[in-house]
Nucleic acid binder design. Sequence first.
DNA 1: ATTTCATTTTTTCTCGAGATTTACACTTGA
DNA 2: TCAAGTGTAAATCTCGAGAAAAAATGAAAT
Lengths: 240, 240
Amino acid sequence: MNDANVLAETGEMQEPKTLVEAAYKQLRRDIIEGVHVPGEKLRVEHLREHYDVGAGTLREALLLLVTDALVVAQGQRGFRVAPISVADFEDITRTRVLLETEALRQSISRGNDEWEASVVAAFHRLSRAEQKLADHDAGTTEEWERRNRAFHEALIAACPSRWIRHFQTILYQQSERYRRISLFRQPIARDIHAEHQALFDATIARDVTRASSILTEHILRTLDAIKRMPPDFFNGKQNH
Amino acid sequence: MNDANVLAETGEMQEPKTLVEAAYKQLRRDIIEGVHVPGEKLRVEHLREHYDVGAGTLREALLLLVTDALVVAQGQRGFRVAPISVADFEDITRTRVLLETEALRQSISRGNDEWEASVVAAFHRLSRAEQKLADHDAGTTEEWERRNRAFHEALIAACPSRWIRHFQTILYQQSERYRRISLFRQPIARDIHAEHQALFDATIARDVTRASSILTEHILRTLDAIKRMPPDFFNGKQNH
DNA sequence: ATTTCATTTTTTCTCGAGATTTACACTTGA
DNA sequence: TCAAGTGTAAATCTCGAGAAAAAATGAAAT
């Protein structure tokens, strides 16, 4: 499995050992944050300057991003940022519900005390970040995003299936791109903390059915938010 | 999505446009067929000769195989064929059941006449291959493998979720490695054609429940076969 | 015999330049 | 005005060589 994705909130990710990995991480960050917009052509010779690596090295970094489905490669026609669309996000969301609820089910039924403790810790960290976010502290969205991911990862950490967790990581990363859009221009108010609290309570209570349905609703709510956005938002932003 | 994987039985795959793609396809074939055994170190300089490409080109091909999880890359320590184990195959199988039954459900409920026709055609081709296989014709296992994949792909082709189909493709490819083992040294006799026939009948009859349960059993049966194999089969074959 | 350390060998990683292909602008002709 | 073709510019793909790191070898010491 691609361990480069596994990034715990506490255990900081290992320093990238090669230039390829460093460029990969920077590029991934830039794509998720929208520095490179969906559909944009990624010309190796131009990116070379900005990321300060050789052409071959950058090509390898782009190839790694193909694994995350953040970049699409077309033979003899270079690389592009993977496009986005409402239909794609609906697909991502529904597939994520399928995998993540199953993972949560298994996690709840097989998780031990240590797992429970890590869930408590992750929820606590997330709550603090949400508090800061409510107080309009500056520059905390980055932190919230990290802790939100850590919380969701902690919930399903006791799921024994490496493949489900692997696919879940990819889908979560994909949805992160969309979430960055919906969070800032949110048409409907969401009490995200209340959702997390309910999800946390049901999980600790080992109530599989309730936890699953809350998680499903939680994930689907972002889909609603995206669907309510101006329909032309996904067009016209993609170069070429 | 990685379209390089999509390989229809009828519409032959496009010729690889670049050397990287050609090397990728050859390497993938060799790994699935066991020419490069699980866990084997893949030294670029050695493979260079055999695949007749430059070092950088071969590195890129290996990076593409990371996407399929057939190769694992470790920074500054090169590439290796992804290892195999009974636990991994159990994981692959159960995840595949989860995704493929869901895909089949959606495919059956949304498939139109054209889809139905392609399923009939794929089943017919597979039946012929199984006939030849029963007659002990030489060199037909390759053809059977292609048509078996085509049949399974046709079944879920009407599933609208690109992501489920994408993950299913990866898992099917993974399981192919294991199936190559169990098919030749089969400890229990399986009437695979009867299983396919039942699966086909239920699908055409649009019986979602029955088709799902048959598919589940069908996939799990190979897991049984692997589990019955000598437990040390997965050890001692992996270089270093 | 085993551990430690330095040396040698192997392998991986990285870069820039040349060859091939694609994309683009322009001209020509209907 | 539009279509097709031509030539130029740009981008991709590919390779081999040098730098950096890891693995292997062997010598010395406990």
